[in-house]
């Protein structure tokens, strides 16, 4: 039905697309650990290679009632609700940094349970609402 030329072009394009799809898939697979912007405390617990002097990022929630501020130093616990890791940091934190909110800490691991950060980023979640509504939700939860 279709002219031969059209079929030929369709086949060529399919071949190009298919091969680039496979190439991209392989690239993403091999890079998968590098694509992850941060590791969760569980990832760190499970991984074999925890070289101390490598810079990594740890992310999760700031655990409730774990934040201690003593002078310039801030200590808190990052949790993914399965495992947790203690973080120490001195410096300024973003406005959105607070307990029970997402956080990404950049720095070096001391051991599997202790992390010294030299940079703190706040990770925002996908919820957007006006402040009054937040108050109502808070009351209802209590």
């Amino acid at each position: 039905m279709l002219p031969k030329k059209v079929k030929k072009r369709a086949a060529l394009l399919t071949a190009i697309l298919f091969s680039s799809l496979i190439a991209i898939f392989i690239i993403l697979k091999t890079l998968s650990s590098n694509i992850l912007y941060f590791k969760s405390p569980t990832d760190i617990k499970n991984s074999q290679d925890n070289s101390i002097n490598k810079k990594i990022r740890v992310g999760g929630m700031v655990k409730k009632n774990s934040l201690i501020i003593s002078g310039a130093e801030i200590k808190f616990t990052i949790t993914d609700f399965k495992n947790e890791i203690r973080v120490s940091y001195s410096g300024t934190v973003p406005n959105l940094f607070s307990e029970e909110k997402g956080v990404v800490a950049e720095g070096k691991l001391q051991d599997k349970k202790y992390f010294i950060a030299d940079r703190i980023l706040a990770k925002h979640d996908e919820n957007y609402m006006p402040p009054e509504l937040k108050e109502i939700i808070k009351k209802n939860v209590k």
Binding site: L13, L17, L21, I24, L28, S32, Y37, V104, K123, E126
Partner: peptide, 29 residues
Amino acid sequence: SIIAAVGFINIPIIKYSVEWWNTLHQPAS
């Protein structure tokens, strides 16, 4: 045309990047 067709593979990657990997960017609201 070939560039656009190959670049098309990137579109679902952008859409689902926040679900497939840990990202700083928040998921879709």
